[in-house]
Simulated assay, not measured.
Amino acid sequence: MTDLSSGPALKEQTVTIVRELAQAAGLGPGRILVIGTSTSEIAGRRIGTGGALETARQVLEGIAEVQAEYGFHTAFQCCEHLNRSLVVERELLERLGLTEVAAVPVPHAGGSMASAAYRSFTDPCLADSISAHAGIDIGETMIGMHLRRVAVPFRPSIRYIGEARVTAAWTRPKLIGGERAVYRLEQANDSSACD
């Protein structure tokens, strides 16, 4: 089992994963990263059985470090007891026209990560749902419902934070058209007419 008494190790693992995903997904200003986290799983326990605010804070520090570099927005998924709503800054909620729901996440109703994020934000609120450009799932919390279509799996060089398995994805627009479709302008040949 991983020694979780070393906060820097959790933060460093998180920084590596988030930075790699930010680069692969092209995250920057105006883009949204959704994060689901089980601090119980990070500690090597079954999800929902041993959440820890201190563990959440260490992971949150790593996410915030990369967020400061790239300028993307974050949305932290609450647990099923708050219907997987998301902690976001009110400015983002209002700019995107998201539906606000009423609750304050706490470790046993929302989860330790959502609780820590809520307390670290400038003007936090909960959104019912979001369509994020990329996502990180730490401990199999099921964030897929909050990703845009089409999700592209991403495999970071580090596959665990503590004892929690990490899965990640970035999204791309749907490719439309058939055999005549062109997806990059530099490949376009405008000389042939369409019937």
Rank of each mutant, 00 (worst) to 15 (best):
M1H: 12
M1R: 13
S5C: 02
S5W: 00
S5G: 15
S6P: 01
A9N: 10
V15I: 14
R19F: 05
E20M: 08
L21D: 04
A22C: 08
A24V: 07
G26A: 06
G28A: 07
I32V: 15
V34G: 05
I35G: 09
G36A: 02
S38K: 13
S38C: 13
T39E: 03
T39F: 01
E41N: 11
I42Y: 02
R45C: 04
I47C: 05
G48V: 05
T49S: 11
G50V: 01
G50Q: 00
G51M: 04
L53Q: 09
L53C: 09
T55V: 13
V59D: 06
E61N: 14
V66A: 12
Q67F: 05
Q67A: 11
Q67T: 08
E69P: 09
G71C: 12
F72D: 03
H73G: 00
H73W: 12
A75V: 01
H81R: 14
L82T: 14
S85M: 10
S85L: 02
E89A: 09
E89G: 14
E91F: 05
L92E: 07
L93E: 07
G97T: 04
T99G: 02
V101I: 10
A102D: 10
A102S: 11
A103L: 08
P105I: 01
P105V: 08
V106A: 07
P107K: 07
P107Q: 11
A109F: 01
A109E: 05
S112I: 01
S112G: 13
S115R: 09
S115I: 00
Y118P: 14
S120D: 11
S120R: 13
F121P: 12
L126G: 10
A127L: 08
D128R: 15
I130F: 03
I130S: 09
S131W: 03
H133T: 04
I136D: 00
I136L: 02
G144M: 06
H146A: 12
H146T: 05
L147S: 06
A151H: 00
P153T: 01
R155P: 04
P156F: 08
I158L: 14
Y160E: 09
Y160I: 00
Y160H: 15
E163T: 07
R165Y: 08
V166E: 05
A168N: 09
R172S: 03
R172W: 00
G178S: 13
R180K: 15
V182T: 15
L185H: 12
E186D: 13
A188L: 15
A193R: 15
A193W: 14
C194T: 14
C194F: 12
C194M: 13
C194D: 11
D195W: 09
